[in-house]
Design a protein around this nucleic acid. Sequence first.
DNA 1: TTGTGTAAGTCTACGGTGTAGACCTATAGT
DNA 2: ACTATAGGTCTACACCGTAGACTTACACAA
Lengths: 241, 241
Amino acid sequence: MSRSTNPVGAEAAQQHPRATRREPLSRERVLSAALALVDAEGVEALTMRRLARDLGCNAMALYRYAASRDELLDGVVETVLAELVIAPDGSGWEDRLRSIAHEFRRLALAHPRVVPLVVTRPLATPLGLRPLGTVRPLEMLLAMLVDAGFAPTDALRVYRAYFGFLYGHVLTELQELVASPEESDDLLRLGLHRLPPQEFPYVRSLATELAHYDGAAELDQGLDILLTGLSGHRRPRTTVG
Amino acid sequence: MSRSTNPVGAEAAQQHPRATRREPLSRERVLSAALALVDAEGVEALTMRRLARDLGCNAMALYRYAASRDELLDGVVETVLAELVIAPDGSGWEDRLRSIAHEFRRLALAHPRVVPLVVTRPLATPLGLRPLGTVRPLEMLLAMLVDAGFAPTDALRVYRAYFGFLYGHVLTELQELVASPEESDDLLRLGLHRLPPQEFPYVRSLATELAHYDGAAELDQGLDILLTGLSGHRRPRTTVG
DNA sequence: TTGTGTAAGTCTACGGTGTAGACCTATAGT
DNA sequence: ACTATAGGTCTACACCGTAGACTTACACAA
């Protein structure tokens, strides 16, 4: 964020609406407009000129707040991830992981067109060079797990298994897109009628199950498997009652 | 660089283009060149003009073999996924899932820059409208699981959990990118020195573990958890072995 | 032979893209 | 009053995907 005026002098924040045609730009305003645009029309719609138009400014003005389009995309990811609230203390680490997982799923469903960015952007950038907001969930989860009694190394392993599972679940759930929601026939809704019947008998026969995916339930089942597996394999140093 | 390959003049009229006409284009040739380009320089390097240059033809010629750049990307995904060999019968479903998982991981490591496409492209297209080569693994796994005694509905659930886990693992493993492989210090290799120490104590302290990720081992541990979990929760109709 | 249809590839052009660099302009600090 | 600077604009460039018309080369019927 921009460094505000020093608290030494009187706050000179007198802003005259005359001075600026519209309320002034800011990184936050730019990023939230960018997120809105991606949510509404997808990543490819986020161009500098288009975003500038939405904000009522010149395209080049955006470069004061993001060094490039790529950094803009990173900023969008950061903005979404900042919404991920880590459940407060008071419950065991398993319950907290459960809660965070559902929170993450909620975010993914709220911003489905950002998900590709979330899972993909980190692949291009080494950990230490990523936007801080992207690394923060990792740090917070490690802290939580260590706090719950895990040795740091085990905490990292749990984190990896857990977040990998989470990414995978979200991707899987979002893949169950319906081609034409208004269509009543499940086969048609998913476009499955275009698959050669003799080559894809099972996929076609599972049209109904494919069309109705209870993501929350499936997430819970996965968490059951994962958490009991993690508890069984490597226990925290201290038992958390 | 002359017409040495085809001395007979009967059907060897190939003089006009500035570059010597090599063997004719084909969808396979185009896609394999596209894959090579993505492997070498990343997705953003795959432009029509650049690919055409690599193939020694005009950019517009490519449209005879792919309707658009997007379809080209789908083709690249299909090409990679076609390499995924499903283990033959003779072993139990759990062993086969294990083998396929390692095969998938091998592919991901062999084509890291294609992975974003693999996990991301399906999000844009409903199941039935995807390239057939993309749906084939789903069909094959369903067939295998049903063959192993699962009810189709359970097979689908297993598939979802399994492939979700697989996607997640691969994404997680590929995220452990080293900024500068030649650097000896783990902290520096991952660029972790740029993280504020007081805000990211755990991430920084785990530099060594982050830099040395035994992906195969972690995959196996995850598979252990997943498969025992799956066996425990929903059994096949008939007991195998 | 000639004519014709067709597939493969080329050329040109259009509207769009990210962004470098020069420029403008209103304000803050001296 | 002067000037430095931050915020925003303008212009320009190289590149992008691709529509549409054009050029071939060749198979085959007459």
